[in-house]
Nucleic acid binder design. Sequence first.
DNA 1: GTTACGCATGGTG
DNA 2: CCACCATGCGTAA
Length: 920
Amino acid sequence: MSSSSSTTATATATVTNNNSNNTSCCSSSSTVLSRKCFNSDCTDFKSRKGWRLRSGDFAELCDRCASAHEEGRFCETFHLNASGWRGCESCGKRVHCGCIVSLQAFTLLDAGGIACMACARKIFVMTSNPAWPPLFYHSPFPERLKDLSAKSWNQLAGSGPVPWRQAPSLFNSSTTQSELQPRMPYEIDRLNAGERFSAPSLEKRNLEDFSERFINGSPRNHLWDIVENGNAGIIGDEQPQLLSSVREDISAQQFGITIPYASPSESKGQIEGSVNPVQPAPLPLFAKRFHGTLHKGADSSVDGQTRNGRPRIDARGKSQLLPRYWPRFTDEELQQISGNSNSVIKPLFEKMLSASDAGRIGRLVLPKKCAEAYFPPISQPEGLPLRVQDSKGKEWIFQFRFWPNNNSRMYVLEGVTPCIQNMQLQAGDTVTFSRLEPEGKLVMGFRKASSTSLSDQDNETSQTGDGVSANGDADFGPSPWSKVDKSGYIAKEVLEAKSSIKKRKSSTLGSKSKRLRIENEDMIELKLTWEEAQGLLRPAPDHVPSIVVIEGFEFEEYEDAPVLGKPTIFAMDDLGHKIQWVQCEDCLKWRKLPLNVLLPSKWTCSSNTWDSERSSCSVAQELTSEQLENLLPSCNLVTSKRLKAAKKDIDNVEALGGLDTLANLAILGEDEALLASSQATTKHPRHRPGCSCIVCIQPPSGKGPKHKQTCTCNVCQTVKRRFKTLMMKREKKQSEKEAETTRKQQESSAEKLLDDDPSPSSNAGSASGSPNKKKAVSEGSDDDPNRMKSSASPFKGQIDLNIKPEREDELSPGSDSGGTKRMLQGASERYLRMQRFLSSDGDGIPASVMLQGASERYLRMQRFLSSDGDSIPASNHTVSSGGADEKVGSAVILGGSHQDAGENHPSAFSLITSASTPAT
DNA sequence: GTTACGCATGGTG
DNA sequence: CCACCATGCGTAA
């Protein structure tokens, strides 16, 4: 079989085709083209997967050969007489060193010779990894054994109790990513066979851990690879503990082929975060990146980044680790970390600091997989002290531990506050973890979110300029790394219509990218003021709004999302017909169009099908400069107002939800806002560009003007709304608790609460209020302070703007009429558009302005709430946002100069700044 | 009263 | 439906 031929050698080979064939092995083609067993010495038909080829595919073998491979007898069976056999320096076991099949079955010893993996592990354990003092490996065997749960393996293999031998097939056919790489089965098998571990019964969960450890981390790479070769017995009965402990060592020292897989497919795989197991190992993301620059004095083949083409964080690792944890070190960063030493830096992972991480608690939550893959295994919650060096060479000792959590573990690094502070990090910044090889020293770097001028933001792709170094991709040029990032992420993004524009201001956003992802493009394109944004709103072409009346005002509610169209100016023509003026993208001339026309964001004269005479840029525009002047505002404010005025005349659509969204975007469009937003919160993963929740619509705390009590901007409204919701929620919980404890009594009391609500609520900020709040309350009249409270029920059947349906619909079970509830729910998913604001004012009134009128009632509400005897201090309202409580300084609502939300002032959105929550 | 600890909760993918 | 993880929050120090 050709396997022998290709083998190890190919270390330097550059594989360009990762897909199926290209393997370093000669007959890879046969794998694909013929049905014959990959083993050239065999004439049977292939039926099962064998070892992994360098291309990432697997040698397809006949049943017999596959079995031999799986049992670690392949070389013995087929190349027994071939050259390349060597004896383990330790145990003497013969290992075929000249075949890819057994590539991972041995390791080269510093002193020469080889050691089978079983011995290698022991050796390394004995010597211990410098980075991980022996103490790290103390975990009792039983504990470690837990890491090997047959079930896990099965799960990983996706075949439950299926014999490992069958596992390969699973991989074969799997187009879906599997946690296990093809070689895993082999390992599993061995495990199951008890060859490796004596523990008869392995816990599933632990097994999983085991698999993870060996797959994600370098150790895994090796072990994994090793196993892959099918050198049964080599791994022998290593204790899991040992196995894991050896991981890094092995990775760092072991043989290995550094195969720069850089094929596009690989990139894709990575991009997807789900690499097909059968696919080539993910690009040596790190390896590549470091190539040339980081391998100082270290054998490139030893950097542990790739083994059989597997990068430090192999495909599986990558697929397992969320992209957001993928290290995105730049050469500079790495360089800096490595300093002048000859160390090789192994980027491990990185994590954007959450509010909690950066808080005073001093606990940095570590991604589980990362912790398990790269940090010493710990069996006790107390964990171990971990010495970490920062990029400046300063050493820190953190307690690496975990908390039991939902049958799982939550890993944390304790005592990071000093370090965090030292680095002047804050939520949104990123800390990076890497390891210096061969020292094994853990290095913690960081990257300031704010320092990143460019980043890919993205969700998980953010590549920021590291605090340590500069930019990311740009520096890498052709390096695989960059390829990965670019072809990978970027490609993906491109596909998603995220253009290069994105790179503009993502950085900060990037900081929050994880939770608050705003598409760069959107941000850029929607760098508008609220007013401007409103001008872009259009009802869906076929919309059929339902009219609701709130406080005497009619609103059109649309089921469909608003449409962002090209901004136009609505006006009346000479005949008194409503029309709209639109400006050509090319010639900038204004053209008159029918009122109901919804234009695409890009529109030119050539698209003027309504006025053939003016369907060319060469034709003069109808408007005189004077008319145009009148039509066009000189400033945004004016513009927006006019636009709104015009819009009003023509039933322009004003969508509350849409406004919120746009407001958001508008805010985000501001550089500052961007920064702010990036740090606004990390607790609401679902936030999207259109999200109008309090978290999204408010600037980071401390920023932006303060809202006046009477402010009725969306932010304020939301805050108030949320507060109410929270109140209701709490009430509900409270009552539920009571119910449980004292059923009977509670029932009566509950009824009372629910039923009595109306009356108490109607009264001025009664302390009793809580119950009242349970009800969805419609706004009271603008002028009536008490209105709000009393209005609760009166407005049944009408939309309650105070509700945040999507998350609060369940809040008031016993709350008032179903109608209200229904409305709330409906509102949750709709964009409530204030199509018509039945204002007596003849002039068009911007939605925001219109809302202004209601400001007072909010103020009153605020007061009401403040005075409310509820447990929530008036000065520090806690509003619930999607389950996350947010504390809103009253100042937000009560204090500061009032900037009317209606003003087309981006800052208007910052009003709530002070309202921002600590966490968010 | 404050801080720290560690488990619980709940949103998100 | 589940794992992950950010944060909440009760309890102890």
